[in-house]
Amino acid sequence: MLEDMKAEDIVGEYKEVTLDLYKLGSRKILYTEIETPYPDGKLIVSTTNVEGVISHVNQAFIEMSGYAEEEVLGQPHSILRHPDMPPAAFKDLWDTVTSGKKWQGIVKNLRKDGGYYWVKATVIPNIRNGQVAGYTSVRRKPSATVVDESIKLYPTLF
């Protein structure tokens, strides 16, 4: 269960939408058109358990998401889910990683303050003693070209 976003956390004018999140029910999303540029050279790293619940984040995750570490640990990774991302992308992600394979894609992530940031995300299953023990997600700076392609493509996938 994810809490609804709160108006007092949002910076700037926002729109409101309710997202239906897989296995988590609905969440009220407040989002703005303010982009935070991806910082050069950094990697955003997080790990989750097999259910997608966050167990580790690095400093870049905290800086880019706008959440404090204690606010995200124990929360579903879909806390970053932006309404502009087509559900098909996340279905593909889960279908891929639960079959033990690596997934890669361009993702628009939602910040706590309602803004967004684009990433090139790679998710891999953490295989320990032959079993999937969780997932590691690593995000890096996407090129402007692939972001432009995604901006055009994603609205067609709803």
């Binding site: 990697l43 790293v45 790990t47 690596k102 890669q104 790679t122 998710v123 891999i124 953490n126 320990r128 590691t136 997600s137 690593v138 890096r140």
Partner: peptide
């Protein structure tokens, strides 16, 4: 070590 290897794996693609 396993975590670092997983992380490197994500960078190799």
């Amino acid at each position: 070590m396993e975590f670092m290897i997983d992380l490197m794996d994500t960078l190799s693609v």
